[in-house]
Design a protein around this nucleic acid. Sequence first.
DNA 1: ATGTGTGAAGAGCTTCACAGCC
DNA 2: GGCTGTGAAGCTCTTCACACAT
Lengths: 209, 209
Amino acid sequence: MKDPIPKETISRLFTYFRSLLCFSKLGKKNVSSYEISKLCNINPSIIRKDFSYFGDFGTKGVGYDVDNLIDEIRGILKLTPASKVALVGVGNIGKALLAYPNFESEGFKIFMAFDNDKKKIGKKVYGITVEDMENLEKRIKEEKIKIGILAVPESMAYEIAKRMTAAGVKAILSFAPCQLVMTENIEITCIDLSTELSKLAYYSYKNLE
Amino acid sequence: MKDPIPKETISRLFTYFRSLLCFSKLGKKNVSSYEISKLCNINPSIIRKDFSYFGDFGTKGVGYDVDNLIDEIRGILKLTPASKVALVGVGNIGKALLAYPNFESEGFKIFMAFDNDKKKIGKKVYGITVEDMENLEKRIKEEKIKIGILAVPESMAYEIAKRMTAAGVKAILSFAPCQLVMTENIEITCIDLSTELSKLAYYSYKNLE
DNA sequence: ATGTGTGAAGAGCTTCACAGCC
DNA sequence: GGCTGTGAAGCTCTTCACACAT
């Protein structure tokens, strides 16, 4: 229980969490920092230190109890109870998200989905009924939704981000290929797929040299 | 031209690049590190130092020439000429990628797409003809493709990654929600959408406190 | 014997502050 | 006056190495 927790630690906890779910699925009861290391590609000392910021989760000479560790991390990362999320844009990316497995086990639920295409409104997509974007503010307020996902074209991203923020959303994950500059106190993560690809390519060239 | 370039610097160059394209599109000829800072949310000193690793791109008292800086970064990041990329899996995520704008301006071209669904094979999707996954190795070798994108279910990800690697692929971007542990010398980036959402949620909760 | 937890040392990155040039 | 480029200082994170528990 030390003072300043590196932000990389938080980021890595998500990685550990995912690998622990794997171990658990495989029926493993106990893991060492070395085993987690192999799966996550992270140095064992870092793993032990990361955990030690939050408590003594392991047993010396033995390792960590998988299920117990999962619960501890779930607590640290506030992955429970499931947060309600609003999705805007039921195009390819939107559908991909609705079809994604595991959201609930990671503390998530896409609770509502909006689109402005009249042909989609009212239809069910992977179990969720698409709603009219006109009702965005009303519905977000009704359900007190704090997290939004933007899967709309670049040209609409900013306006919808503004509308969501005004309705009380505190965090947005955007797939629009642009920087969203917001004045409000809101957390924005942009995943620009072409940038991700570019990064990957850069490292692959280095691999070829 | 200094010795050790922080890896964060490389990562930020992609962010600068994207914002410079914005400035250029808006007709701006010159920018200062402060203007880039505002758009990217990165401290101006860092921006200047990042550029200085690669040369003196700016003019004191004036700033940086937008188009020149774009060219410099393009060179550093090897964003030209366009790399040929192979996509495997033409489901929702695959289609989203095929429909994505800007890939070419960032040095990319999805050059071929594979699926194992007989109904999709031979059909054109956003301008690309879907090919039979059986021909994966043959086609990748023919076109000497070095970069692959995996947009397939978790259960198939590992096997296809192995096949691509064996055929000569050096870098893989995977959207499967799992860690891909590969023994070969290959660069793998996994984008697990549920983990991204979880991270976002974590920071949003902090925002609410 | 094995694997955790942790202070201390070391590496790497960011911030500061200012000289230098337009 | 304005803004870049950069050594030096400061800070944060990682690695090391070992005491300690089982």
